[in-house]
Write a protein that binds this DNA or RNA. Structure first.
Lengths: 191, 191
DNA sequence: CCGTAAATTTGATGTAGGTCAAATAATCAT
DNA sequence: ATGATTATTTGACCTACATCAAATTTACGG
């Protein structure tokens, strides 16, 4: 498991049961059908979305080109960071790629707990740390790897993505054209 | 001013004077001469480095190629995030590009305060949030802009970088070859 | 099943930006 | 200053990947 995720799990397991119970009150489960948008540009991201079941992605438009920034699976947390932190309208879509079950953690109610219990703020901080390092590593991949290497790295880290998603979305996540991704794939299977 | 920086400044100004005083005790000033390394690969990043005077950068080697990830000026905070958070050896250099004065905020002593005062943890969290969003935006630039656009964007946001630093370093920050950067520049001045 | 639409592959061609090499220009020590 | 060293520019060429277009495969509603 990712060491940052492990760190968060450990910390939440060590939470005093009373706090944990209060925390769970803030959680609201919800289902979305395939293709539904959990967030759209212009909306304020008012919650963390913890994925229980299914796959989702975050993407934005650059002109006519879709850029997929994140793909979420079980236990991942989907959030539009800038919009969430500053509570201002964002510019991304969060989309259900399959039937989806999520736990919604409301911003306002969560923040109250954050101020009531330092442990909860710590947990919140750990999430942000995970995000920051995740982005740093992803940036590094773009700065040091070519398209094939990024594909290989993804294949290794998230084989699920490759198995279940159409090339369009994988290509947009790797920031290459779908034609290029197709060629990378055919070259790899032929070797 | 960057809204995240403003947010941090506002919060630290609202800090109760007693806490502020305790916080200042943790601060230690230090000078470095041009070319000195404040951090090297293999070392654990055990402090935040707040730049008081001068310019610094963070970089790492990818094979023989240097990649500059950040360039720091007055009031910026230099830290190797992954190494700092997990307190494990990192793989980056932090280098003084000029004569440099920094305020060192020691990890251990700062963390004690973080647990003593929720306000301080909040401040710490805000720093991480700033970092996370900074990385997200930088990633976006690589995904949506070509070399000239990245140069223009840097010129606009950080004209100081362009004025005071050699092409080698700017090029490595923009992730282009120095030759390409040189051509971009000559094309721009001729137009 | 079959026809149609969507997804994927394959091919031809263009271009941004890399690499290597040489030419200037700037910096610096004696 | 003057030579030596380092930084920057310029030129020739090459490669990874984009784009456009067509072919093929897959999925899917009737």
């Amino acid at each position: 498991m990712n060491p940052y995720i492990k760190r968060i799990k450990d910390a939440s397991n060590q939470l005093n049961p009373e706090i944990f119970a209060e925390l769970e009150e803030v959680f609201v489960d919800k289902k979305f059908s395939k293709g539904a948008y959990l967030l759209r540009p212009g909306q304020i991201c008012s919650s963390h979305l913890l994925i229980k079941e299914g796959i989702a992605r975050k993407f934005y438009f650059n002109g006519h080109k879709e850029i997929t920034t994140e793909i979420y699976f079980h236990d991942d947390v989907a959030v539009s960071l800038d919009s969430y932190i500053m509570q201002k309208p964002g510019d991304v879509f969060i989309e259900a790629l399959t039937e989806l079950e999520v736990t919604i953690i409301d911003y306002g109610r969560f923040h109250k707990l954050t101020h009531k219990y330092p442990e909860v703020m710590m947990l919140d901080k750990m999430f942000i740390e995970y995000y920051a390092v995740w982005f740093e590593q992803r940036l590094k991949e773009f700065q040091t790897m070519d398209a094939s290497q990024r594909y290989l790295s993804l294949l290794e880290k998230e084989p699920k993505i490759i198995r279940f998603l159409p090339v369009t979305i994988i290509a947009s996540f790797l920031n290459v054209s779908l034609e290029t991704l197709s060629r990378i794939r055919s070259k790899m299977t032929s070797e």
